[in-house]
Design a protein around this nucleic acid. Sequence first.
DNA 1: CTAGCGCATTGACGTGGATCAACGCTGGCG
DNA 2: CGCCAGCGTTGATCCACGTCAATGCGCTAG
Lengths: 257, 257
Amino acid sequence: MQKLTFYSQIDHRADNRLGPNGADMQITIDLIGTLPLFERLEPSLRLRIEAISETIAVGADHVLSLQGTMPKHLHVLLEGQVALSSTAADGTTALVEVLHPLEHFVLASVLTRLPYLMTARTVGPCRLVAIDAEGLLGIVEREAAVANVLLHSVSREFRTMVCQVRDLKLRTAAQRLGCYLLARVKDGTAERAEFRLPFDKGLLAARLGCRQENLSRAFAALRSYGVETHGSRVILHDIPRLKALAVPDELSDPNVL
Amino acid sequence: MQKLTFYSQIDHRADNRLGPNGADMQITIDLIGTLPLFERLEPSLRLRIEAISETIAVGADHVLSLQGTMPKHLHVLLEGQVALSSTAADGTTALVEVLHPLEHFVLASVLTRLPYLMTARTVGPCRLVAIDAEGLLGIVEREAAVANVLLHSVSREFRTMVCQVRDLKLRTAAQRLGCYLLARVKDGTAERAEFRLPFDKGLLAARLGCRQENLSRAFAALRSYGVETHGSRVILHDIPRLKALAVPDELSDPNVL
DNA sequence: CTAGCGCATTGACGTGGATCAACGCTGGCG
DNA sequence: CGCCAGCGTTGATCCACGTCAATGCGCTAG
């Protein structure tokens, strides 16, 4: 349930807005403006986007977009977690990313009018905004401001994928894990940190591109670098030492992505 | 030298345009319109982009953009090949993509005004268009048509990276090679094909995410699937069989990317 | 409290690919 | 003509990781 508290300022409003029977359009009026994606747009444009948006709530393990089908909506996650995975022709599937509240997905498919490359599946119960794809495209094609906001966004997503490719090619699972853990600590100067993993280790393993067993071993390997774990609670005792193993290199820090 | 013939309709003009001493601005007038990236823009917008563009020629092994530095130009390749690679903090480097004529690069960096994530290095002598980054951003911010063209382009790039991530996580080097070879043959119905690799095997290995030695073994493994090689000349004797090994799944075919 | 389930850990073993080293082939050059 | 440099291939060995199987641990339900 901890995930429900992630973005409580949104949850409050959403709680009123959403009866058990679905979305109430009227109360979404100021919602679009609270999404980082659109917050810098002027009000009239936000209204036009709101007019083609809908807030939806779905249960766990629900497929929001199926690989190979055409995009109907751009989704923005309000609450919960969504796993993006891509399955190859032989049926094996790779988890590409796990999304957290306020992140959006399938933007590239919507913009190119090409079939989804990934399947988006809710990890637990989720609440999200669904923006009509064709409607959005109509706005994007005329409004440079909207196009620019999305341009920035897709570009950033592209850059995270480049980093992921590089890390898969160059780093070991333990290094990727170290890097992931270091990215969880906000305070760049701290020598010590403690936090909870945002999802269970099975998902984390998939996100890092390895099996759960191997993730276990990676955690074990990191113990000599001052990493202590109790279930999903993680303590980093010696951040500088961990950084020496898995440098979260200058370019992967948040303000560069 | 074979690469000089790739896009002869451009080469002709470029040959006149470019004296040994560099670019001649006047003759670039219709150049922007010939780039797939901009061909659908109306003439007045193309002119504005041309005004901030320059044609340049550089020798082999020349760094066009250095990872970590700020973007100054958007580059479009006219002739030659450019390798995009990303180096991790420990100094190891992964080749992410090899570009061919008419492709562009570092678009995401330019659009986000963030430092390059990759180093772009010419493989052989190249001719390219360099578009001033800030000038382009100025146009993009006001002109929805330009923004949309780029939006489409970055989205497609994003999708190719997603495929690359998936393939790295799921497929073996031999499968990736098979897939790459199948992508070289245009005719989807042919049972047999013959062509030349566009670059040497060292680069191909890097592009596929393995060592040269392993690429050799991958070629050896594919021999039993009807793949025959003589230097850079490749013959696929039994495309259906190769497809069974390395399905270039529906989603990685060109009209989906 | 205990049974039982699900997640996490640990061990044994197989495989893909990296690394290191040797060798062949080809093409330029003295 | 023979030498040498560069690319490609092949073999031996090592390491990271996947797979399979057994065990441990914390949780909830009875």
